[in-house]
Computed example of a mutant assay.
Amino acid sequence: MNYPFGRNILLSTVGFDRLLNAFNDLEKSVAETKSVTYPPYNILKMGEHDYAIEIAVAGFNSDEIDITVDNNKLTVTGKVAQTSDTEYLHRGIATRDFTREFTLAETVVVRSADMQNGLLVINLQNIVPEASKPKRIEIGARVEPRLVREPKAA
């Protein structure tokens, strides 16, 4: 495998294969697609484990927006209902279809979504499992190895 950030980082890591593969996938994705700028968004850190994504969705109704989470990928899709026969003299508010994707860590869950002042606000929480929290290891103490997570079936 070819890692853009060099082989040195691999020498001091154990068990980060999936993370390194995610970096490779991200690099390929950026290279293959042009930069998506619509609609604009913010990612906020609300607390130690709480985050929010704000997406500017002026002109959209809540029934024109679809939010899904699948395999740690949050996808927000907006589809404008073309029901108006209005003739615009100037149309400065962009209300075109869009798809916005965010990759979430395995421990991040979507808590809620709401529309406020033309913004779609998606609240996220990072739930760190007890097994992943730091532990103090006593010198001389023996700890029997245990399987933290069942391997995924192929």
Rank of each mutant, 00 (worst) to 15 (best):
L89I: 14
I53R: 00
K34L: 09
E48W: 00
E101G: 03
G59K: 04
N61S: 14
V148S: 09
N126W: 01
T103M: 08
N123A: 12
D66P: 01
P4G: 04
Q116P: 00
I137N: 06
R149G: 05
A105V: 10
L89V: 15
I137K: 10
N117G: 01
I53A: 05
Q116R: 07
K28V: 06
K34F: 01
V110Q: 15
T37E: 13
K45C: 08
E144A: 15
I43Q: 05
G118N: 01
S112M: 12
K79I: 14
L20H: 03
D66H: 02
D66Q: 13
R146I: 15
K28Q: 07
G59D: 04
G15I: 12
I67L: 10
G59I: 05
M46E: 12
R100G: 08
L74A: 07
R146P: 01
Y3C: 07
D114G: 01
P129L: 07
L20F: 14
I43D: 08
R136W: 04
G47W: 00
D50F: 04
M115A: 05
E64C: 02
Y41W: 04
A31V: 07
R146V: 11
D17Y: 10
P129N: 03
I67P: 02
L19G: 06
K79R: 14
K79G: 04
E64Q: 15
A153R: 12
G59Y: 05
E101Y: 00
E130Q: 12
E32I: 08
N117H: 00
L19V: 10
F5S: 11
G140D: 10
I43L: 09
R111P: 06
D66C: 03
E64R: 07
I43P: 05
E48A: 11
N123H: 03
I55K: 01
V57A: 00
